[in-house]
């Protein structure tokens, strides 16, 4: 019965189709050029789809405390709103039927939120599971995504333009001696989250030629982040410390600084290097747009004599 349904679903698709293996290890047959994509994670998959001009049949969105819906990051970066793009699900509350009602030809979700319902979603349309927190480089993830949605050429063109842009921003400076480290300071419980990869931040600073600080080695190999006690702040050595704040929660660049001061008092004052605070909605997603903004937020007077 299931096979019949699948066959019926696959019929209207173009005959061209390809097999891919997703991040959860499933082999999925997907259309060559998907025309109705449902994205089930706002600031991971929807942002990439929006930047690559993928025809979205629907996206997941979050519930604001006033009851309205918003597509985190896709709204800040590309002005995307629901219901301008139809609602596919409220974050973490996927209803396969609602997804089915959008008649998608491809569903893309993420490991943490979508894996449980993959079986059901696969009845609706080919379903790809992405793992953005598995320790892979953001550009690799983005390239794979572009391949799934038939945007490889566009991706390479955007990448080339981004790299050219980075050269302009660098302005001939050699930044390879500079190290950077993205850190989230939790103002509630006094812990620090050390990040190996942080979407747009990694794309921006790697492309500018900076080096990830050694402290990122605290993060286990197959992960993108790890939580450590604020007592470890003393071990953080970098020329640029990248902090982020959620502007949609009315946080300001001072919010992460204050959080850092509460968790590790006096550390930022004695830090010595540069501290930059960027909007998390723009810096966390994997996008050239957000990464370009992060590049421009890097202090112009940055100079690193030798690797620290």
């Amino acid at each position: 019965m299931i096979r019949l349904v699948l066959a019926a679903l696959l019929l209207p698709l173009p005959l061209l189709a390809k097999d891919i293996t997703d991040d959860a290890g499933f082999t999925v047959t997907i259309p060559d050029d998907p025309q109705r994509v449902v994205s089930l994670h706002d600031w991971i998959t929807t942002v990439m789809a929006a930047e690559l001009g993928v025809p979205l049949a629907g996206t997941s969105a979050r519930l604001r405390s006033d009851g309205s819906l918003y597509v985190r990051s896709a709204e800040e970066l590309f002005g995307m709103t629901v219901p301008e793009v139809p609602l596919a699900s409220i974050h973490g509350q996927t209803d396969p039927e609602q997804v089915a009602a959008l008649r998608p030809d491809l569903i893309i979700g993420n490991l943490g939120d979508t894996l449980d319902q993959r079986d059901q979603l696969a009845l609706v349309a080919p379903t790809i599971i992405m793992d953005p927190e598995g320790g892979r480089d953001p550009l690799d993830l983005y390239r794979a995504f572009a391949g799934w949605v038939n945007r490889s050429e566009l991706f390479e063109a955007k990448l080339a333009a981004f790299q050219a842009d980075a050269q302009g921003v660098a302005g001939g400076r050699d930044l390879s001696a500079c190290t950077y480290l993205p850190v989230l300071a939790n103002d509630r419980d006094g812990t620090l989250t050390i990040l190996r990869h942080y979407g747009g931040v990694t794309m921006a600073l790697d492309t500018l030629g900076l080096t990830l600080a050694d402290a990122a080695g605290m993060v286990p190999e197959s992960q993108s982040r790890t939580v450590v006690s604020a007592e470890m702040a003393g071990a953080l050595r970098a020329d640029v410390l990248v902090l982020t704040y959620l502007s949609s929660r009315e946080e300001t660049p001072d919010t992460p600084r204050n959080a850092f001061d509460r968790a590790a008092p006096g550390f930022l004052q004695g830090f010595g290097g540069h501290v930059m605070a960027v909007e998390r909605e723009r810096a966390y997603p994997i996008s050239f747009q957000g990464a370009a903004e992060v590049m421009r937020a890097l202090p112009a007077d940055i100079a690193c004599a030798e690797p620290r």
């Binding site: 019965m1 299931i2 349904v5 679903l9 396969p96 039927e97 089915a100 059901q120 009845l123 609706v124």
Partner: peptide, 10 residues
């Protein structure tokens, strides 16, 4: 009776 997508899901 288990026919159609609705049947498969519900």
């Amino acid at each position: 009776r288990g026919e159609g997508l609705i049947g498969d899901l519900r």
